[in-house]
Computed example of a mutant assay.
Amino acid sequence: MKSLPLNLAVLLLVGCGANNTPPQAPLPGKDTSATLSTLETGAQVIQSRPPVEAISAYLDGFHFYSGDKNGQMEAHHYVTVLNEEVMQAVIYDGNTKDARLMGVEYIISERLFNTLPPEEKQLWHSHQYEVKSGSLVAPGLPAVADKALMNKIVNTYGKTWHTWHTDRDKTLPLGIPALMMGFTGEGQLDPALLADRDRRLKIDTQEIKARRADILAHPVAEGANAWQRGEVIQLKRVQGSGEHGHGDTAHFGASEKSENQKQP
């Protein structure tokens, strides 16, 4: 990690906080054979994995489908710092060895976000509320390291695509990718999801929120969180129905507006 202080980098690397959230969907297929297990073990010893080894932080938070605030799920982010203003994360549905890879998130600074064209900004969500509310956490980090990391993240913006919708009881990565958003205010996140997360990770979101009270959050930049303005974006097939509706919520095409989604 070239862009964070050395002491914080070390803390991120040695922090714990895993192996308490197994995958959320069953997996079809035969058990791993002895041959494949041997090949896997050999590859781990012989081959290098620089992009994987560059992952240096673990963040746990929550996402929802753009256009469907009822479709909520916990998301385990494993983050690589590319430079001072750009990070990337692989996202899983758990924090165990067999967790399902759900998607990816790209994280950029406020300065870079403000350089984006208006149509691109619609794809990005803010992190101010997630950090200040304590709903975004870094499991296992000491309080000092957590504060330093969240000071870096609070005014950033993320673009997130999920490719395996394990919350919809899909045992394989079926369907098309979905654009995800982050929560922006009180009363949006399902309290049962938050309580279950806190129980497993042995944390208290309200205590974390209080510790972060002095973190400076800028006003959300214009153009982010487009779903709050009714500008809902999702991919859709040229023919056939979409995968990402929940209940009576429709599946939306790019920049299609919904009267029901204009306010959180």
Rank of each mutant, 00 (worst) to 15 (best):
L4Q: 01
A9Y: 09
L11S: 14
G17I: 12
N20R: 07
N20H: 10
P28S: 05
S33Y: 15
A34E: 14
T38L: 15
T38A: 15
A43Q: 09
V45F: 10
V45G: 11
Q47T: 09
E53K: 09
A57E: 05
S66E: 10
S66N: 11
K69Q: 10
N70C: 13
G71F: 14
L82I: 08
N83G: 06
E85S: 14
E85G: 09
V86K: 14
Y92P: 04
D93N: 04
A99Q: 07
A99G: 06
E105M: 14
I107Y: 01
E110P: 00
R111G: 07
L116H: 03
L116I: 03
P117W: 04
Q122G: 02
W124I: 01
H127D: 11
H127V: 02
Q128G: 13
Q128H: 13
L136Q: 08
N151V: 00
K152W: 06
K152Y: 08
I153F: 08
V154M: 02
W161F: 14
D167F: 08
R168I: 02
R168V: 03
L174R: 14
I176T: 02
A178W: 15
G182H: 15
G187A: 08
D190E: 01
P191I: 12
P191H: 04
L193D: 09
A195P: 05
K202F: 04
I203R: 12
R212Y: 02
A213F: 00
I215Q: 05
Q234T: 03
K236S: 01
R237L: 05
H244R: 10
G245A: 14
D248I: 13
T249Y: 10
T249F: 11
A250F: 04
F252N: 00
F252V: 07
G253R: 05
N260K: 08
Q261F: 13
Q261H: 08
